[in-house]
Design a protein around this nucleic acid. Structure first.
Lengths: 335, 335
DNA sequence: TTGTATGCGTTATCAA
DNA sequence: TTGATAACGCATACAA
């Protein structure tokens, strides 16, 4: 509990026998200050264990060097942060931000609440916002971006989009998954996921397109609006499997959903992949550890995180370009 | 890109025809200001979409209302944030902090670097630090706490500890796991985990104690220093299983390790639980989804997060008491 | 009950 | 090349 009041720049200046402004310049590597003075002051600061107070620096410079990472909370009860995909993305963002000298303010945002985005973009909180997923908030995000805020989102490119998004080509992903199953001889292929969400919707479009291209008529009955949480998904899929005992293939909107699907099918006495082939999405770590290991559509999160951070920092002055990375089909034993 | 300069308290004061100080007090619900004035100002601020600039507020009040959550990085290459236990804890902390009006600054800390804790506790960064795990940094954390900083850690209670820790009773946990296996008739029980880490060490002690209490002699050969990452653990366990084909039970230091153990054993042609019984630790979501579902020692993360937050906030003025919550054995099919 | 004045720790402008 | 001074936006001691 012993504590000396923390050092300020004034203390360092006094010890160094120079003015505060010189210390400030020296620590900022400002070439105005003589090399000799600069080194002397930097050394002294290090010895004293002094470091610039970020709050004061932020107030003065109007830059926080903080980026807010926001995880949309779709429903009151959901816990999206413990979702493996979200966690993976957060971990990559932590690295990507740290690499550029930024801190990460992590929060779950209840997107059903009024002005959720305003709170995130409030001056003095963060220099920009990275949203992991657009949820149903495309219009709101657009709005914020048009007002000059640095917002980027992981997700899909949508029509009339005025913010930068980074994601994979979801239509291609859906197509890869479905044509793989068709090649395996599957004909009654269900799609599991909430197609109203932008990314999932595009994957579903890809799914439909793959069917059509190979001359099969899509059956709207085979779209099952599964939740994203493992537990909820399990309930959804159990019901679906009972109602549609004839399916022989599944394209899932995430690996978590795919895993629940394996479980529901196994419970129902149907063997994977012998009777039903399954393809997941994301290639989270769980995918290779599932039983059987999941065939899935891989998204490169490390690269995605890098691009998001790059764009949110550009976004402080400009709107950056959106990116759709190319997803890759990873074939394992579930198909 | 259109952007008016953000509102300040002065703007609100001008609009309201009062002094800045009155606005400040009104927004702080300071009873000094007349109820009528207060409501009028609050309403006006809401209409204008004004909210207090956190940076300025922090500088003036010397409180950030931010808590830094730090995940120790044991090795250069490890990615602890994507570990399911860590993320589960982060998710719970996000809720617990939000519930008390605090923001979460999340970072991985390279504990091998000089003065990692000083950087976290730097004035103007955060009001306190929550460490998820003590790593091997007990002494360093102690030191910081003695200098009057608000640090708490998830983990074990250790001798001469001058900071508050929150965790479960690890000895009891180890004991529960091992005596359960002994009751199942298992006699060659391996312990998988790095016992040099405080929590794991205590679980190992509990393991040994359970063996002794029931009259069995512990075999030091059956301690396998597994890594925490699934992949690394898998390698460790493969080697161990080959070297010790006679084991019939496993106590793992985490569910992730337990899951890798199931996999390694299955690969080696040994059936779980018929030939080898396995008990995990943590009860992460994966546990109930494993094949077979994992018997495990459950730690209550929601409660743990609540206690950590409570203590780190106390820690701004005092050192809070440590807690060891009671773990619970959850019996599923892996044992 | 409200207003005035000062300072939190820094950076930027201007002068020397 | 360095120093003095003002300002970032707010909260509080003190005055009215």
């Amino acid at each position: 509990m012993s504590d000396k009041t923390p050092l300020t720049m004034a203390d360092v200046a006094a010890r160094a026998g120079v003015a505060e402004s010189t210390v400030s310049r020296a620590l900022a590597d400002n070439p105005l200050v003589a090399e000799k003075t600069r080194l002397r002051i930097q050394k002294l600061a290090a010895e004293l264990g002094y470091s610039i107070n970020p709050v004061a620096q932020s107030l003065r410079s109007q830059k926080t060097r903080v980026v807010a990472v926001a995880v949309p909370l779709l429903h009151e009860s959901s816990q999206p942060l413990s979702d493996p995909f979200m966690m993976g993305m957060v971990a990559q963002l932590a690295d990507a931000l740290a690499a550029r000298g930024y801190s990460m303010l992590l929060s779950k945002v209840p997107v059903h609440e009024e002005d959720w985005i305003g709170r995130l973009l409030q001056p003095g909180r963060a220099d920009g916002v990275i949203l992991i997923g657009q949820s149903f908030e495309h219009a709101t995000i657009n709005d914020a971006s048009r007002r000059g805020k640095a917002v980027v989102a992981w997700g899909a490119q949508l029509p009339e989009q005025d913010y930068a998004s980074v994601g994979t080509d979801n239509r291609l992903g859906g197509e890869l998954a479905t044509s793989h199953l068709l090649q395996r001889g599957r004909r009654r292929i269900a799609f599991l996921g909430d197609e109203r969400l932008p990314e999932v919707g595009q994957r579903y479009e890809g799914h439909i397109q793959a069917l059509r291209q190979l001359g099969f008529a899509p059956d709207p009955e085979l779209l099952a609006r599964s939740h994203f949480r493992a537990e909820d998904a399990l309930d959804d899929i159990r019901a679906f499997v009972t109602a549609h005992p004839d399916i022989d293939g599944i394209v899932a909107a995430s690996d978590v959903i795919a895993n629940s699907a394996i479980r529901a099918l196994t419970e129902a006495g149907r063997r994977v992949p012998d009777e039903v082939s399954i393809v997941g999405y994301d290639d989270i770590e769980l995918a290779s550890y599932a039983h059987p290991p999941l065939t899935t559509v891989r998204q490169d999160l490390a690269e995605g995180a890098r691009l998001l951070v790059e764009r949110v920092l550009i976004g402080e002055t400009n709107v950056a370009q959106s990116v759709a990375m190319t997803p890759a089909l990873i074939i394992r034993q579930s198909s």
